[in-house]
Nucleic acid binder design. Structure first.
Length: 118
DNA sequence: ACATTGACTCGCG
DNA sequence: GCGCGAGCCAATG
């Protein structure tokens, strides 16, 4: 092994991937929230970069990652957008006009919401 | 070394 | 809802 990680994974990327991997099925989280949980507050953009680098082969639940306002980060209608929407709906997450109700499906949602569900 | 670009976020008007 | 500016910072040219 030569050097270290010029283009490979560094500590931050690993921490971020780990957080993303732990988002429960049927729940979603924002880029900023993920960054914060990875110990990197205000580094939402890094989360996006990690996901882009990772690609589909990384086996990460990238579709559970949304913008802070609950919207899908991709442009409505494009390929990635439709794929993400389909995956979310497939695991029971409600998507209305490219929007997800974070109070209901957010990883850090209010517990009371769940109680009122059934 | 400098400028631009983003799977981002927040505050203000 | 929309646009702007600022903060953020690794990658890219």
């Amino acid at each position: 092994m030569s050097k270290s990680v010029a283009t490979d994974s560094n500590k931050d990327h690993g921490a971020i991937r780990k957080v993303i991997a732990s988002i429960p099925r049927g729940r979603v989280a924002s880029y900023g929230e993920i960054a914060a949980r990875a110990g990197l507050p205000r580094r939402a953009r890094l989360v996006g970069r990690v996901l882009r680098d990772a690609g589909d082969a990384a086996k990460l639940p990238w579709h559970r990652v949304l913008r802070a306002d609950g919207r899908i980060a991709f442009a409505p209608g494009n390929r990635a957008f439709r794929e993400q929407r389909a995956r979310l709906i497939d695991e029971g997450v409600g998507v209305k006009a490219g929007r997800i109700d974070l109070a209901r499906y957010g990883w850090q949602r209010n517990i009371d919401e769940e109680i009122w569900r059934l």
